[in-house]
Each structure stands twice: as C-alpha cells, then as structure tokens.
Amino acid sequence: MSTEYVVDGRFSMKSDVFSMGVLMLEIVSAMKIRKIFHTNHHHNLLGHAWLLWKEGRALELSYTCLEDSHSRSQILRCIQVGLLCVQKFPKDRPIMSCVYSMLTNEEAILPQPKQPGFFIERSPRNSGAMLRNEESNIDNTVTITMPEAR
C-alpha cells in the first residue's frame, strides 16, 4: 500500500504507481516485500533495494537466474524504475504512462530516485516476533455463507 494511504487513509492518483514499483522490485529480486532477512540491517525489500542503490550495488538485488550479461542494464533499469515508483511522496513518483515509457525506451535518461516510503528499520526482535505471529495466525479454512429466505 502506498504511504499516503497508510498514513492518511487516502488514495492518490499515484497509489497504483507505488504498487507497480513494489511489484517490479519483488519480481527482480524474487523476494516478497516483508519476507526479507539480511544480516546487516532489518529493512523490508524497499529499504534493502534503496541501500543497495545508494551504495552502487543494485545488481545484488537481482535474482540469480536473471544475471546474464545481456540483461544487466535492463535489470538496473527495472530496479531504478521500481525505486522511482515507490518514492515517499506521490508528487515525486512518475505517472503510469511515464513508467511504461521508461521501461520501453532504453535510451531515455532516468532521474535518480529519492528515498522510498516505508524506509524504516525495525528492531530484529520485533520483526521476528511479528513474522512468527503472522505465520502462526494463518488458517487455511474456508467458510461458505448460504443466504436463506425468511
């Protein structure tokens, strides 16, 4: 969910762009946004991608099967566009038609992304407890409601 929805309970014209960025980063990394564990920090996928981008190591985010020499520039472009889409403020995010253009036009020069929304480091104790609680509350039951007339 976009930061403006989580913080203010409001969707913006760019909430879908935020979701697109999350999806792109999840696909490139083959990781889910909240199911990432790293030895050096306790960020989610957005924070991890941002740290790697700032350090010039963004290719480390990519899933190993994507790492052939032909696609490195495309992977970096997807990561950069993904980070542009998940920026904290809606006004900093591109519109969806620009996202499409950035992905299809390899000659276009892309702006540098700013820090993403939800770039918050969790304490390792709290994040582990949160994940354990989430996983223990998963219930694979189905309920069916059958309406009956009076």
Rank of each mutant, 00 (worst) to 15 (best):
N137K: 13
Q87E: 11
A108L: 12
F119T: 13
S69I: 03
E148M: 15
H42F: 04
R72T: 04
R122N: 03
I138H: 07
Q80S: 07
S71L: 13
R10T: 09
M96K: 02
I27A: 03
I27G: 00
H70S: 06
M96G: 08
A30H: 09
F89P: 00
T104F: 06
C78T: 08
R77D: 08
I75T: 10
H70R: 13
H41N: 10
L25V: 01
V81A: 09
I109N: 12
C78A: 12
N40D: 12
L61Q: 08
Q87G: 05
R122H: 11
I36K: 01
D139W: 04
T143G: 05
V86D: 04
D8A: 07
R72V: 02
H41L: 01
H43T: 02
R132M: 10
L61R: 01
G21D: 06
Y100D: 02
I120D: 14
F11D: 04
L66Y: 13
C65K: 15
M130H: 14
S71Y: 11
N40S: 09
I75L: 15
N44R: 00
M24P: 01
I144T: 06
L59C: 12
K14Y: 11
R150M: 08
V99S: 09
P90Y: 02
I27Y: 11
M13P: 02
E106Y: 00
M130R: 15
C98H: 04
P116I: 09
P124D: 00
H38E: 04
T64F: 15
Q87C: 07
V7R: 15
A30W: 03
Q74S: 09
D8T: 10
L51V: 05
S19R: 01
G47I: 13
D139M: 07
L23G: 00
I36S: 01
S136F: 05
I138G: 00
R34D: 11
I144K: 05
P90E: 05
A108D: 12
G56A: 07
P111K: 01
S29E: 04
N126G: 06
L46G: 05
S97Y: 06
N44L: 03
E4H: 00
F11Q: 06
A49Q: 07
S69R: 04
M130T: 09
V142L: 15
L76R: 03
N126I: 03
W50A: 03
D68G: 05
M146K: 12
L66G: 03
Q74I: 08
D8M: 10
G82Q: 04
T39P: 08
P113C: 10
F37Q: 14
H38P: 01
L46I: 07
K114R: 12
Y5Q: 11
S2Y: 03
F118C: 15
G82E: 09
S12T: 15
Q74G: 02
T3R: 15
D8W: 01
N40Q: 11
D16E: 13
N126V: 06
M20E: 05
P111I: 12
P124A: 09
K32Y: 00
E148Y: 09
I95Q: 13
Y63H: 15
N140M: 15
H42E: 08
M130K: 14
P147I: 00
A58D: 05
R150N: 10
H48Y: 14
L59N: 14
P94R: 00
N126M: 13
